[in-house]
Computed example of a mutant assay.
Amino acid sequence: MSKSRKITLGVTAGALALGAGLGVTSIASATTTPTPGPTSSADTKAPSDGHGWHAGHGRDGGQIASKLASKLGVDQAKVTEALKAFRQANKPASPPSEGSETAKPDRAAQEAALAKALASALGVDEFKVTSALEEIRSEAKADKTAALKARLDKAVSAGKLTQAEADAVTKAVNSGVIGGGGR
Protein backbone atom coordinates (compact mmCIF):
# COMPACT_ATOMS: atom_id res chain seq x y z
CA MET A 1 0.00 0.00 0.00
CA SER A 2 1.42 3.39 -0.96
CA LYS A 3 2.26 6.00 1.64
CA SER A 4 -0.32 8.46 0.29
CA ARG A 5 -2.98 5.74 0.40
CA LYS A 6 -2.10 4.98 4.03
CA ILE A 7 -2.29 8.66 4.93
CA THR A 8 -5.62 9.01 3.16
CA LEU A 9 -7.01 5.96 4.96
CA GLY A 10 -5.63 7.23 8.26
CA VAL A 11 -7.18 10.66 7.84
CA THR A 12 -10.47 9.10 6.77
CA ALA A 13 -10.45 6.73 9.74
CA GLY A 14 -9.63 9.63 12.04
CA ALA A 15 -12.43 11.68 10.57
CA LEU A 16 -14.90 8.82 11.00
CA ALA A 17 -13.77 8.24 14.58
CA LEU A 18 -14.02 11.94 15.27
CA GLY A 19 -17.47 12.10 13.73
CA ALA A 20 -18.66 9.13 15.75
CA GLY A 21 -17.12 10.43 18.96
CA LEU A 22 -17.98 14.09 18.76
CA GLY A 23 -20.88 13.94 16.34
CA VAL A 24 -21.89 16.79 14.16
CA THR A 25 -22.96 19.04 16.97
CA SER A 26 -23.48 22.69 17.07
CA ILE A 27 -21.69 24.85 19.54
CA ALA A 28 -24.73 25.39 21.64
CA SER A 29 -28.04 23.65 21.92
CA ALA A 30 -31.25 25.13 23.21
CA THR A 31 -32.66 21.77 24.22
CA THR A 32 -33.04 21.57 27.95
CA THR A 33 -33.81 18.82 30.40
CA PRO A 34 -35.48 20.05 33.57
CA THR A 35 -34.55 18.62 36.93
CA PRO A 36 -36.46 15.34 37.35
CA GLY A 37 -39.48 15.54 39.59
CA PRO A 38 -41.93 12.94 40.82
CA THR A 39 -42.98 12.10 37.25
CA SER A 40 -41.15 9.66 35.03
CA SER A 41 -38.03 10.85 33.25
CA ALA A 42 -39.75 10.40 29.90
CA ASP A 43 -42.26 13.06 30.91
CA THR A 44 -39.60 15.65 31.80
CA LYS A 45 -37.55 15.69 28.62
CA ALA A 46 -37.84 18.70 26.37
CA PRO A 47 -39.14 18.05 22.88
CA SER A 48 -36.54 17.61 20.18
CA ASP A 49 -37.78 19.38 17.13
CA GLY A 50 -34.47 20.35 15.55
CA HIS A 51 -35.36 24.00 15.22
CA GLY A 52 -34.63 27.21 17.04
CA TRP A 53 -31.11 27.91 18.19
CA HIS A 54 -29.76 24.43 17.44
CA ALA A 55 -32.54 22.92 19.46
CA GLY A 56 -33.17 19.26 19.31
CA HIS A 57 -29.66 17.86 19.67
CA GLY A 58 -30.39 16.92 23.28
CA ARG A 59 -26.75 16.81 24.32
CA ASP A 60 -26.50 19.78 26.63
CA GLY A 61 -28.62 18.42 29.49
CA GLY A 62 -29.93 21.86 30.42
CA GLN A 63 -26.52 23.52 30.42
CA ILE A 64 -27.60 26.29 28.05
CA ALA A 65 -30.47 27.29 30.32
CA SER A 66 -28.18 27.12 33.35
CA LYS A 67 -25.42 29.16 31.72
CA LEU A 68 -27.85 31.72 30.34
CA ALA A 69 -29.57 32.08 33.70
CA SER A 70 -26.22 32.63 35.37
CA LYS A 71 -25.02 35.18 32.83
CA LEU A 72 -28.33 37.05 32.77
CA GLY A 73 -29.00 36.88 36.51
CA VAL A 74 -32.41 35.26 36.13
CA ASP A 75 -33.99 32.03 37.34
CA GLN A 76 -33.05 28.92 35.33
CA ALA A 77 -36.68 27.74 35.26
CA LYS A 78 -37.67 31.01 33.52
CA VAL A 79 -34.93 30.52 30.92
CA THR A 80 -35.98 26.89 30.38
CA GLU A 81 -39.59 27.93 29.83
CA ALA A 82 -38.58 30.76 27.50
CA LEU A 83 -36.46 28.35 25.43
CA LYS A 84 -39.33 25.86 25.24
CA ALA A 85 -41.73 28.61 24.19
CA PHE A 86 -39.32 29.76 21.48
CA ARG A 87 -38.95 26.22 20.11
CA GLN A 88 -42.71 25.71 20.10
CA ALA A 89 -43.30 29.03 18.35
CA ASN A 90 -40.69 28.18 15.70
CA LYS A 91 -41.67 24.57 15.18
CA PRO A 92 -42.59 23.80 11.56
CA ALA A 93 -46.25 23.08 10.89
CA SER A 94 -45.35 19.72 9.37
CA PRO A 95 -42.18 17.69 8.99
CA PRO A 96 -40.46 17.86 5.61
CA SER A 97 -41.62 15.21 3.22
CA GLU A 98 -39.18 12.42 2.42
CA GLY A 99 -36.89 13.25 -0.45
CA SER A 100 -37.74 16.95 -0.46
CA GLU A 101 -35.00 19.46 0.02
CA THR A 102 -35.81 22.21 2.44
CA ALA A 103 -33.88 25.42 2.58
CA LYS A 104 -31.98 25.90 5.82
CA PRO A 105 -33.18 28.90 7.79
CA ASP A 106 -30.86 31.87 8.05
CA ARG A 107 -28.74 31.23 11.15
CA ALA A 108 -28.20 34.90 11.97
CA ALA A 109 -31.93 35.58 11.70
CA GLN A 110 -32.72 32.60 13.94
CA GLU A 111 -30.21 33.72 16.56
CA ALA A 112 -31.54 37.29 16.47
CA ALA A 113 -35.10 35.99 16.84
CA LEU A 114 -34.03 33.82 19.79
CA ALA A 115 -32.31 36.74 21.51
CA LYS A 116 -35.36 38.95 20.97
CA ALA A 117 -37.76 36.28 22.26
CA LEU A 118 -35.63 35.53 25.31
CA ALA A 119 -35.17 39.21 26.09
CA SER A 120 -38.91 39.77 25.94
CA ALA A 121 -39.79 36.67 27.98
CA LEU A 122 -37.14 37.30 30.63
CA GLY A 123 -37.40 41.08 30.85
CA VAL A 124 -33.72 41.50 29.97
CA ASP A 125 -32.07 43.79 27.43
CA GLU A 126 -31.75 42.10 24.02
CA PHE A 127 -28.09 43.14 23.72
CA LYS A 128 -27.34 41.43 27.05
CA VAL A 129 -29.01 38.21 25.84
CA THR A 130 -27.13 38.33 22.53
CA SER A 131 -23.83 38.86 24.35
CA ALA A 132 -24.54 35.98 26.74
CA LEU A 133 -25.38 33.64 23.85
CA GLU A 134 -22.18 34.63 22.04
CA GLU A 135 -20.12 34.04 25.20
CA ILE A 136 -21.67 30.60 25.68
CA ARG A 137 -20.99 29.74 22.04
CA SER A 138 -17.36 30.88 22.32
CA GLU A 139 -16.84 28.89 25.53
CA ALA A 140 -18.36 25.78 23.94
CA LYS A 141 -16.18 26.16 20.85
CA ALA A 142 -13.06 26.45 23.02
CA ASP A 143 -14.11 23.34 24.97
CA LYS A 144 -14.76 21.42 21.75
CA THR A 145 -11.39 22.45 20.32
CA ALA A 146 -9.59 21.39 23.51
CA ALA A 147 -11.41 18.03 23.55
CA LEU A 148 -10.50 17.41 19.91
CA LYS A 149 -6.86 18.27 20.55
CA ALA A 150 -6.71 15.95 23.58
CA ARG A 151 -8.33 13.13 21.62
CA LEU A 152 -6.00 13.54 18.65
CA ASP A 153 -2.94 13.82 20.94
CA LYS A 154 -3.99 10.55 22.57
CA ALA A 155 -4.37 8.87 19.17
CA VAL A 156 -0.90 10.11 18.14
CA SER A 157 0.62 8.90 21.41
CA ALA A 158 -1.03 5.48 20.95
CA GLY A 159 0.34 5.25 17.41
CA LYS A 160 -3.12 5.24 15.84
CA LEU A 161 -2.42 8.48 13.95
CA THR A 162 0.69 10.32 12.91
CA GLN A 163 1.05 13.96 13.92
CA ALA A 164 0.54 14.92 10.26
CA GLU A 165 -2.75 13.00 10.19
CA ALA A 166 -3.88 14.62 13.44
CA ASP A 167 -3.00 18.03 12.01
CA ALA A 168 -5.01 17.21 8.86
CA VAL A 169 -8.05 16.25 10.95
CA THR A 170 -7.73 19.47 12.97
CA LYS A 171 -7.51 21.50 9.78
CA ALA A 172 -10.55 19.72 8.31
CA VAL A 173 -12.61 20.37 11.44
CA ASN A 174 -11.53 24.02 11.69
CA SER A 175 -12.41 24.63 8.05
CA GLY A 176 -15.83 22.97 8.40
CA VAL A 177 -15.10 20.03 6.13
CA ILE A 178 -15.93 17.57 8.93
CA GLY A 179 -17.30 17.76 12.44
CA GLY A 180 -19.27 20.99 12.18
CA GLY A 181 -16.35 23.36 12.82
CA GLY A 182 -15.41 26.50 10.95
CA ARG A 183 -18.54 28.51 11.69
Score class of each variant (00 low, 15 high):
residue 5 R to T: 09
residue 8 T to A: 15
residue 8 T to S: 12
residue 14 G to W: 01
residue 15 A to Q: 02
residue 18 L to N: 09
residue 22 L to R: 10
residue 23 G to V: 01
residue 27 I to C: 09
residue 28 A to S: 10
residue 32 T to I: 05
residue 42 A to V: 06
residue 42 A to T: 07
residue 44 T to N: 15
residue 52 G to S: 09
residue 62 G to Y: 06
residue 62 G to T: 04
residue 64 I to D: 10
residue 64 I to A: 14
residue 68 L to R: 00
residue 69 A to I: 02
residue 69 A to V: 05
residue 71 K to Q: 13
residue 77 A to F: 03
residue 80 T to L: 04
residue 81 E to M: 05
residue 82 A to W: 00
residue 84 K to H: 10
residue 85 A to N: 12
residue 87 R to S: 12
residue 89 A to Q: 09
residue 92 P to C: 01
residue 95 P to V: 05
residue 97 S to Y: 03
residue 98 E to S: 12
residue 105 P to V: 01
residue 106 D to H: 05
residue 118 L to K: 02
residue 118 L to A: 04
residue 119 A to C: 04
residue 124 V to P: 01
residue 125 D to A: 03
residue 126 E to P: 02
residue 126 E to N: 13
residue 126 E to Y: 00
residue 128 K to P: 02
residue 129 V to M: 05
residue 130 T to M: 03
residue 133 L to D: 13
residue 136 I to V: 11
residue 138 S to R: 14
residue 139 E to I: 14
residue 140 A to D: 03
residue 140 A to P: 00
residue 145 T to Q: 14
residue 145 T to G: 08
residue 149 K to P: 04
residue 157 S to R: 09
residue 160 K to M: 08
residue 163 Q to I: 05
residue 164 A to I: 00
residue 167 D to Y: 08
residue 174 N to Y: 01
residue 174 N to A: 09
residue 175 S to I: 07
residue 180 G to L: 10
